[in-house]
Amino acid sequence: MTFEQFTGTATYLASPELRDAVNVAVALERPLLIKGEPGTGKTMLAEAIAEGLGLEFLSWNIKSTSKGHDGLYVYDTVARLNDARFGDRDIGDIRRYIKLGPLGRSFKSAERVVLLIDEVDKADMEFPNDLLHELDRMSFQIDETGETVTATQRPIVVVTSNNEKELPDAFLRRCVFHYIAFPDEDLMRDIVQVHHPEIEEELLRQVLIAFYWLREQTELRKRPSTSELIDWIAALRRAGVRKEAMEEKLPFLGVLLKHEQDLGSVAGPRARRAGVLH
């Protein structure tokens, strides 16, 4: 058992299943694919792994225009053209115009790194398949110079997806997959206490009741997430809202709910419910 054990960090609490998924992906040297509701810490996981294992962290944020090749290297032909016409630099050496992308740098690094490929689903449907070969072999060739870059230390690859597109099966088969379920009340309590260590017990209890009640409301267009809960508590504490006030009406709801219709639809029932309780 020589593989490193990821156990979460002081600020990132990972459930046992998530830790197992991370560790098995590290041991099997397979990409770890992470999905989950927005705000469940998909992106932060990769940083936490880097921090927890003491490795360097590289991030590749995917956009709709991203191409698989960009992650390996970019040949800056325009800069070379510009130099040829107007510059006085030596344009004979093409290597000066080859810039390694995040994936390329993660291969070239002498130390093992953690590479985050963030929101892979934003790119074209075929994007993940374009990376398969390189991720399997952990090496690629720079056509322009004939140089081959081979990873000396296989990077730990974490891929996140928001489900905007179906990922190709061939890609999925090679991944270790984990879906981060929305935290239950106990885990949420721990998470909140990491961010607000001095929160009053009674306020925390009230806040969590209200928060999970809100999430159960089916008419909401967007359910509030963990990060919004943390912000909401920060707002409540800064304004010095007393716990009694929580029972009447939820203050600063705009921090939790981002759609106007959601604010409208929740205000009514909550008031009614509060009336029943008293």
């Binding site: 156990t7 609490l13 046992p16 106990d186 885990l187 721990d190």
Partner: peptide, 11 residues
């Protein structure tokens, strides 16, 4: 459900 880090996670 045993937890290597000793943090209780989840009910």
């Amino acid at each position: 459900g045993v937890n290597p880090a000793g943090i209780r996670v989840g009910g």
